[in-house]
C-alpha cells in the first residue's frame, strides 16, 4: 500500500473527473475526517487515514483490500473504474441517465442502454461524457459513457445505443470473486 505517484494521480483524476468533474475536491477535503487514495496491487483504494495507518502494520502480501476500491490500472497504465466506486460517484455525479423500469434489468445484466430504455437524461450531456445510471426512483445502478449527446438522443431510433455500459451493480454478484 503506497501513495499514488504524480503520474498515477493525474491518470486517475482525469478519469474520475469525467464523472464527477471538480467534485473530486470534495472527496479530498472532507469535513468528517482525512481521507486519501492509496495504491495496492495496481488498485486504487479510497481509505480513511485512520484505516490506512492501521493497514500499514501489515505486510503488503497480506492485505487483500482496505477502504473502497475505486478501480484498477491496466497493464498499459490506463485506469478502469470499478462498480465499488459508485458509492462515491453517485452523490457527486454531474451527468445522469435515468432508466425506465423495463430497461433496468437489461442494464443490470451488463448490456448497453438503448434509446427505448431511456427515461431521462441530464441536459447538455455531451458525447462520450461519463454518466451515472439511475433507476426511475433515483437508485444508482451503475455508470457508463454517453454514446450520444443529449440533443442527438432525441433524433435517434429506439434501438440505438445511448449509453455504453461500464459497470453496474449486478457485478456484485457476477464478479463477486474478483471485486475487492
Amino acid at each position: 500500500m503506497r501513495p499514488l505517484t504524480d503520474e498515477e494521480t493525474k491518470i486517475f483524476f482525469e478519469k474520475l473527473s469525467k464523472y464527477i468533474g471538480d467534485n473530486i475536491r470534495l472527496l479530498l477535503e472532507r469535513p468528517d475526517g482525512s481521507y486519501c487514495f492509496r495504491l495496492h496491487r495496481d488498485r486504487i483504494y479510497y481509505v480513511s487515514e485512520k484505516l490506512m495507518k492501521t493497514a500499514n502494520n501489515f505486510r503488503r502480501e497480506d492485505i487483500v483490500s482496505a477502504g473502497t476500491c475505486f478501480g484498477k490500472f491496466t497493464k498499459s497504465r490506463k485506469f478502469r473504474l470499478q462498480i465499488t466506486a459508485l458509492e462515491y460517484l453517485a452523490p457527486y455525479a454531474k451527468f445522469k441517465i435515468w432508466l425506465k423500469s423495463s430497461a433496468e434489468q437489461q442494464f443490470l445484466y451488463g448490456h448497453h442502454v438503448m434509446k427505448s430504455g431511456l427515461g431521462r437524461i441530464t441536459e447538455n450531456t455531451s458525447l462520450y461524457q461519463g454518466v451515472i445510471v439511475y433507476s426511475m426512483n433515483d437508485l444508482p445502478l451503475g455508470f457508463g459513457v454517453a454514446a450520444k449527446s443529449a440533443t442527438d438522443c432525441r433524433h435517434s431510433d429506439p434501438m440505438t445505443i445511448i449509453c455504453f455500459h461500464q459497470a453496474d451493480i449486478g457485478e456484485y454478484i457476477r464478479h463477486e470473486d474478483t471485486l475487492t
Binding site: 499514488l4 494521480t9 483524476f13 477535503e29 482525512s34 487514495f37 490506512m52 500499514n56 455531451s126
Partner: peptide, 30 residues
C-alpha cells in the same frame, strides 16, 4: 505510505488543478 497527510492532500489538489486547467474553458461541443 503514511507521510504528512496535509502535504499529500496539497499535492493531489495541485494535480487536480492541473488536470482541470488542461480542459478548455469554452467547451465547444457543449
Amino acid at each position: 505510505s503514511s507521510t504528512d497527510a496535509s502535504a499529500e492532500k496539497k499535492r493531489s489538489l495541485s494535480i487536480l488543478e492541473k488536470v482541470q486547467s488542461n480542459r478548455p474553458t469554452l467547451d465547444t461541443a457543449k
